[in-house]
């Protein structure tokens, strides 16, 4: 059992915006090779967990470990250089920059093998290769999401954080994004993903956490949670 390598551990995390505390002791861990989802109702603090990891909000208590090192209170810019890649939910591409320029910006912290990485990304996202010279702002929502993901993969990420990657997308693009998430994970990148589309998210996840009102409510493997009657009734919109 000791062969499981922990990538990131969030332990007893209390955090929020200014005086308002949103997370009241959250525990989350991501192991090597895993896709882990955070699901839950609106206002549960799902995205706030990611913001806390990125040091964008005030952390009152608790620890966040990346590969055994505590990263609490390290400024955002340095957290990125430590190998955490992040795709925000909205406003996640530079709209006036071309697709290729967006990817180049993604490689800012480690620009040495930008050309190799660019080729890799165009293989992973063939649509983007055709549109490399177009401004990212001219693309559709689904394609923008692809650009945002490709941009975040331009560095050798130790872990990829995705904030609701399928929000506002059509069902077709939603499935495409989920299969892309699998593909990225298949290439060896652990993923921590916040999702609204709970069923589909659980379908692709190794494990998941259900947050309610800033507390851990349930956790388990994707399958376990999908089969759990109470989880189904409360969070997946199932009637029985």
């Amino acid at each position: 059992m000791s062969s499981i390598k922990s990538i990131m551990t969030v332990k007893d995390l209390f955090a929020g915006y200014g005086e308002t505390e949103i997370l009241h002791g959250i525990n989350i861990s991501v192991n090597d090779g895993e896709i882990v989802s955070i699901i839950g109702p609106n206002g549960a603090g799902k995205s706030t967990v990611l913001k806390a990891i990125l040091s964008q909000i005030k952390i009152n208590q608790g620890s966040i470990n990346l590969l055994g090192k505590n990263i609490v209170s390290i400024p955002t810019s340095q957290i990125i250089t430590k190998g955490i890649s992040y795709v925000p939910q909205t406003n996640n591409v530079f709209v006036s920059l071309s697709v290729e320029e967006n990817l180049e910006m993604g490689a800012w912290v480690n620009p040495n093998n930008t050309q190799v990485k660019l080729q890799e990304m165009y293989e992973l996202f063939p649509d983007l290769g055709e549109k490399r010279k177009q401004p990212a702002g001219s693309l559709s929502g689904g394609q923008r999401q692809m650009v945002a993901m490709a941009k975040s993969l331009m560095v050798d990420a130790k872990i990829l954080l995705l904030d609701e990657p399928t929000a506002g997308l059509s069902p077709k693009y939603r499935s495409e994004i989920f299969s892309t998430v699998r593909k990225i994970n298949g290439s060896g990148v652990p993923i921590l993903m916040v999702e609204q589309n709970a069923k589909q998210a659980l379908g692709v996840s190794d494990r998941a956490y259900i947050l309610v009102d800033g507390f851990n409510r349930y956790d388990g493997t994707g399958d376990e949670l999908l089969k759990d009657k109470e989880v189904a009734r409360m969070f997946l919109g199932s009637r029985d």
């Binding site: 992040y86 925000p88 406003n91 591409v93 530079f94 910006m105 993604g106 800012w108 560095v155």
Partner: peptide, 18 residues
């Protein structure tokens, strides 16, 4: 290019590591 990126969105530039 980074100047144009920051002009587009300073927040995204920050979390991109620029």
């Amino acid at each position: 290019k980074a100047m144009r990126a920051v002009s587009d969105s300073p927040d995204l530039a920050k979390v991109t590591g620029i």
